[in-house]
């Protein structure tokens, strides 16, 4: 991941129009997206109904807002989010995800990476990951910061059903499947920790910016 807190940031933030009711702020980096997201949630501007961070953007939907005022406010906040030292302003949340490493693709991932299955587990549990953004399904977080040795391609033929709680990797990401769904990621194991509960507040456990640690547990 590239740090964007230095002098390489442009003077003015690019803010694109996404229809009459939304603005798309170019942050250039995930950490900046998270900081801008946190600033907006801490003091939500009037009329804003959705704040959706992405790896290099934050979408702000505001049907009731004055677009010019919102644009200048977002420009200010984006600059604050880029400023050196801004990271201290974001409250950090860490979630430990227990995993039974008995996934159907563990042996194949070991073969693809030239590691033993135990080494795959070690590399998956050693680093702290960060929930980058959510998509694909409610509660499905793209976890960034995966050990580059574990970057493996998706399955060429996705499974028609992956169970809820499956812990998987694909490309530079890891994920915990929040519910049973089709899926093309490689399964390393399963977690007893539910990451989605529609009756909870918030319903997703792995919200953007959450730090995530996997821990091997016996099956």
């Amino acid at each position: 991941m590239t740090g964007a807190t230095g002098a390489d940031q442009p003077e003015t933030t690019v803010i694109r129009r996404a229809g009459e009711h939304a603005l798309l702020v170019e942050t250039g980096a995930l950490e900046v997206s998270h900081r801008l997201d946190a600033l907006l949630r801490a003091d939500r501007p009037a009329g804003v109904t959705e704040i959706v961070p992405g790896p290099a953007t934050v979408l702000v939907v505001a049907p009731g807002a004055d677009p010019l005022r919102l644009r200048s406010l977002l420009s200010l906040l984006a600059r604050a989010a880029c400023a050196p030292g801004a990271e201290t302003s974001v409250p950090e949340r860490t979630v430990t995800v227990p995993v039974v490493y008995d996934g159907a693709d563990l042996a194949e991932v070991a073969a693809l990476t030239g590691l033993t299955p135990q080494e795959v587990v070690d590399r998956h549990t050693r680093r702290e990951l960060v929930a980058g953004w959510l998509g694909f399904a409610p509660g499905f977080a793209y976890l960034t910061g995966l050990d580059p040795v574990l970057h493996v391609p998706r399955l060429s033929t996705p499974r028609t059903s992956v169970p809820a709680g499956a812990v998987a990797i694909a490309g530079p990401y890891s994920a915990v499947y929040p519910a049973a769904s089709p899926g093309g990621w490689r399964l390393l194991g399963r977690s007893p920790l539910p990451v989605w509960d529609a009756t909870a507040d918030p319903p997703a456990v792995l919200t953007p910016g959450t730090r995530v640690r996997f821990r091997a547990v016996p099956g």
């Binding site: 997201d37 109904t49 959705e50 704040i51 959706v52 961070p53 979408l59 939907v61 953004w133 959510l134 998509g135 694909f136 399904a137 409610p138 509660g139 499905f140 977080a141 918030p202 319903p203 997703a204 919200t207 953007p208």
Partner: peptide, 9 residues
């Protein structure tokens, strides 16, 4: 359900 886009909803 507005307001849950960041959670994939």
């Amino acid at each position: 359900r507005p307001g849950y886009g960041h959670l994939g909803v």
